[in-house]
Each structure stands twice: as structure tokens, then as C-alpha cells.
């Protein structure tokens, strides 16, 4: 019960942080980090997977509601939520890893970094591809994904380090 309440608070907090503050950063005139996906990294793996997929879809959709972007945040967030487990097991190179004990702070910093980088970049790439919606703009999509991902990853790492306890 406590966990569900905690998760709900995080959910609402991340959405509000994203739409009210981080969507207005406009670093160098055009770069806004997407920090709300930290929810995907921190969500416990032991929970039921169906609920997790649904929640991540809802998370993306909430951001879409605020920023008038159709369903691009929902699509990209759902995608990284779906591939999260396979990415994690390939990074940890264990097939029978005890995922029940998993926590982003319980694995080594380098691995956590790789995990966050892969998922964030995938998310941003899908997001901008759907936003631009044409192959002609591939250059813009890639450069925007890379610069934005760099900013998002730094902010998410700082956030995770300062707001969570090491286990």
C-alpha cells in the first residue's frame, strides 16, 4: 500500500516537474530535457509487468496531454518500458539474475549508466522521429536526440543519486 502511494506521488510529481519546469528550460534556445522517464528506470521489476506497461503508457500520455504532441511521448515511453527487462539482462549478462532484488542503486554505477543511456537514447530517438515524421529530416532527428539525451541523462543521474538511497 505504501509502495503504491509512493509510486503515485512520484508519477504526479514527475509529470508536473516535466511540463511546468523542464519543458521551459530551452537551453541554447531549443533543448528541453525529458526527465520523466526516470520513472521507468526506478520502477521495481518485481511488480506485475502488465501494470508497468500500462502505467508507462499513461505516463507518456499525460505528458502528451500537456504538450499537444498527440501520442509521441506515450509511444516512446511504452517502448522503452517494454524493452527494459531485456536491456537489463543483456547488460548484467546474467540469464537468471534475481530481478526481485533489483534496484538501480544496487548495480554498479557504470552498468546503471549504460542502462540509462541506452533507454534514454532509444526514447529520444523514437520521440523525435515521430515528431518530425519524415526520413528527410534524419540529420535533425539524430542531432536533436543526441544533444537532448546528453542533457536528460545528466539530469536523471543527478536526480537519482541525490534523491534515492544506496542499497
Amino acid at each position: 500500500m505504501n509502495n503504491i502511494a509512493q509510486n503515485t506521488i512520484w508519477f504526479v510529481l514527475l509529470v508536473l516537474l516535466q511540463v511546468l519546469i523542464f519543458n521551459n528550460i530551452n537551453l541554447l534556445g531549443h533543448t528541453n530535457p525529458y526527465i520523466y522517464i526516470a520513472y521507468i528506470f526506478y520502477y521495481p521489476i518485481k511488480r506485475e509487468r502488465g501494470r508497468f506497461l500500462f502505467l508507462s503508457f499513461l505516463l507518456g500520455l499525460s505528458i502528451d496531454f500537456f504538450s499537444n504532441t498527440g501520442g509521441i511521448n506515450a509511444a516512446s515511453t511504452l517502448f522503452i518500458a517494454f524493452i527494459r527487462l531485456s536491456v537489463l539482462s543483456s547488460i548484467l549478462k546474467k540469464t537468471d539474475f534475481d530481478f526481485h532484488q533489483f534496484n538501480i542503486r544496487s548495480i554498479s554505477f557504470g552498468r546503471a549508466c549504460t542502462f540509462i543511456t541506452i533507454l534514454t537514447f532509444t526514447h529520444h530517438f523514437i520521440l523525435f522521429s515521430l515528431d518530425y515524421f519524415s526520413l528527410k529530416d534524419m540529420g535533425s532527428i539524430l542531432s536533436k536526440s543526441i544533444t537532448t539525451a546528453f542533457l536528460s541523462i545528466s539530469l536523471i543521474l543527478i536526480g537519482i543519486i541525490s534523491f534515492t538511497k544506496k542499497k
Binding site: L53, F57, G60, S67, T69, G70, G71, A74, A75, L130
Partner: peptide, 27 residues
């Protein structure tokens, strides 16, 4: 489940690209 939700998301995205349709996802 992933496929169903993803197609919903893509449906909203494509709907957002067409102008005259009344939209569900907006601020």
C-alpha cells in the same frame, strides 16, 4: 498488450498530424 497500447499511441500521433479532425489529446 504492448502492441495494443503502442497502436493507440500511434493512432493519437497520426490523428495529431491531421488538422481538421477533432482531437482528444490536447491541452
Amino acid at each position: 498488450l504492448f502492441l495494443i497500447l503502442e497502436s493507440f499511441a500511434l493512432f493519437f500521433t497520426i490523428q495529431n498530424h491531421s488538422y481538421h479532425r477533432s482531437k482528444f489529446i490536447n491541452s
